[in-house]
Simulated scan of single mutants.
Amino acid sequence: MFEKLEIMQMAQAMARHAALRQNAVAQNIANADTPGYVARDTPAFSETYQQADGRGMQATRPGHVGGADRLQVALTARREPGVMSPDGNSVSLETEMVKGIEVKRQHDLALAVYKSSLNLLRASLGKG
Results as ranks from 00 to 15, higher is better:
107 H>L: 12
121 L>G: 07
77 A>P: 07
18 A>S: 10
60 T>I: 08
46 S>T: 14
43 P>A: 15
99 K>E: 08
15 A>S: 10
14 M>W: 02
85 S>H: 03
1 M>A: 13
66 G>V: 07
41 D>K: 12
98 V>P: 05
67 G>T: 03
9 Q>C: 00
39 A>I: 00
30 A>V: 10
75 L>Y: 03
55 R>C: 02
28 N>Y: 08
52 A>H: 09
60 T>R: 10
107 H>P: 09
88 G>K: 06
59 A>H: 03
23 N>E: 11
111 L>D: 11
98 V>M: 05
59 A>V: 02
3 E>C: 04
35 P>D: 03
99 K>T: 11
98 V>W: 02
127 K>I: 11
125 L>T: 10
12 Q>W: 01
63 G>P: 06
50 Q>L: 15
22 Q>C: 08
38 V>L: 08
114 Y>D: 03
94 E>W: 03
21 R>T: 08
5 L>F: 10
62 P>R: 06
16 R>I: 02
99 K>W: 02
106 Q>T: 12
104 K>W: 00
123 A>S: 14
69 D>R: 14
21 R>G: 11
49 Y>Q: 15
17 H>E: 01
52 A>P: 04
96 E>W: 05
17 H>P: 00
24 A>S: 08
78 R>C: 03
120 L>W: 05
39 A>H: 04
75 L>P: 05
78 R>A: 04
1 M>F: 09
100 G>T: 08
75 L>W: 06
99 K>G: 09
69 D>N: 13
76 T>R: 11
80 E>W: 06
56 G>T: 11
58 Q>E: 13
116 S>E: 04
80 E>K: 12
58 Q>T: 15
36 G>W: 02
92 S>T: 07
